[in-house]
Design a protein around this nucleic acid. Structure first.
Lengths: 264, 264
DNA sequence: CGTAACCTTGAAGATTCTCAATAAGAGTGG
DNA sequence: CCACTCTTATTGAGAATCTTCAAGGTTACG
């Protein structure tokens, strides 16, 4: 199996360019666009979000309620903890992290969202977000006002079904993250984390072997409950063990079998 | 504010007896009952589960699809990882834990469910459960076949709304658990864990100050990624610090303010 | 091209784990 | 109801892991 991002050496950057290009070819090349409209039928994520398998009528209606196709710049927030909940969001391209802070302002927990993944569900229960979302790189987002989605779900049972399934997927994904963090050693946690990322890249038809980490060491450390230094040292160790090649954020897994058998 | 379980000294056991009694007074006192029927209108959890605020018609229909009112004995499984998904479950009384095992059979992650909480959502996405559920004590459960619930939700938008909100609550609750585990020291993790439990007891109109832990030290350790010994030592430390009284599984928080300011 | 953010590495110190032994509780069957 | 067994909990000492503190190097970006 070949991947778009393995055609040349500098594969990771190629990935991002492809995403950016394929997006721009569909939308008007507006610089800071809260205006650009991309119909769901044209979206490259088709099949990975709510629009999967539903009737073209429903798909078109869904396209109508999608309020904006936002571009988020790196470090820009989508919402912050305690903001009012109004919409759900889908990532079209890029990457964001969610994080929770305690009253002292420490970041306590972090997770990451990749294209096709849904954001904002945390606010649905109390109508207030319980976490913050910030872009790790330039990121394109779909916003779907929840009240409109709710109504549309009432009319299209299949859409409702998909929405419910996506919520369940979210729960399973959280569970997977909890499993990562449950690993006994820092090495195992980081390995599990990388393999999880690798699977998610594969789901996006990108190479699960060679990829560029969208997040900093600090973000990874925050996600796993470790320190930056420990994460850094582990990367070095993995490289020495021949498990992977590490160049800053560029990773190439050279021994997936051994890495998968998470035992040391 | 007074609580049912503070009326006498041995308050924790009183708690459990009250729950058992109020349940038995509604259902036929059948020994091993998969037969006993309790209508949603009579259930003491009213307002904490799906039946909240919905029309009496919907409530009665909901009562009709509730397949069984199961009793689970301590250590009995409700379902196991990879079992087929068919139903959602609500805890009426008692306590269960969910856990995930890796291919080597190690328990990697654990969380706990108390009365009013929904179980089984993890299977909705792939139609296969991704975790196992086992009773920590004798536990009464409602089973709701998912296909029937889905249909009923289609007819009653308010029921659909509550179901969706409960899923969101689940996501928020997972997030809270992630926050616990994200605390820096074992002491802080355990404190946060206990305070979380305390809040959940309070939500059930039980004392948030004096309660009996439904789970073993091993379960707590598994939930927080610690060892039994560390958990045990922390309990001893807390007692020495005057934060709480600990007698095996009986806990009395004697200094909630200091405990809440999770800083040492 | 310079500043700021990010990453790496080392050494010392702290926390947590492992191993081991003992004590206390819960469950079982006579 | 008691004796027995098995599970659960406590405590100690030494070993391992991870963190902290500190310094230097690298990368990204205006």
């Amino acid at each position: 199996m070949t991947y778009a991002n393995t055609v040349n050496g500098n594969s990771c950057k190629a990935n991002q360019q492809i995403i950016a290009r394929s997006f721009k070819s569909q939308s008007a090349p507006v610089a800071n666009s809260n205006i650009a409209k991309v119909s769901c039928g044209d979206c490259r994520l088709q099949g990975h979000c709510l629009a999967k398998d539903i009737s073209t009528a429903a798909q078109s209606q869904l396209g109508d309620i999608v309020k904006t196709h936002r571009k988020m710049k790196k470090r820009q927030h989508l919402y912050r903890q305690e903001d009012q909940f109004e919409s759900l969001f889908f990532i079209r391209s890029g990457c964001v992290k969610s994080y929770v802070t305690n009253p002292d302002g420490d970041e306590l927990a972090v997770s990451f969202f990749m294209p096709g993944e849904m954001i904002g569900l945390d606010g649905l229960y109390s109508k207030q977000h319980t976490s913050s979302i910030v872009a790790l790189e330039d990121t394109y987002i779909c916003e779907i006002p929840y009240s409109a989605l709710e109504e549309l779900c009432g009319e299209h049972p299949l859409l409702q079904k998909h929405f419910t399934e996506l919520m369940s997927r979210q729960i399973v994904q959280e569970q997977e993250m909890t499993m990562l963090r449950g690993q006994k050693t820092a090495a195992n946690q980081l390995l599990a984390f990388l393999l999880n990322l690798s699977e998610r890249f594969e789901r996006l038809n990108q190479s699960p072997i060679t990829f560029r980490l969208p997040m900093t060491r600090k973000d990874i450390a925050g996600c796993l409950g470790l320190t930056i230094e420990t994460v850094s040292r582990m990367f070095t160790t993995f490289q020495e063990q021949g498990l992977m090649e590490v160049n800053g954020r560029d990773i190439t897994l050279t021994n997936v079998e051994e890495a998968t058998a998470i035992r040391h």
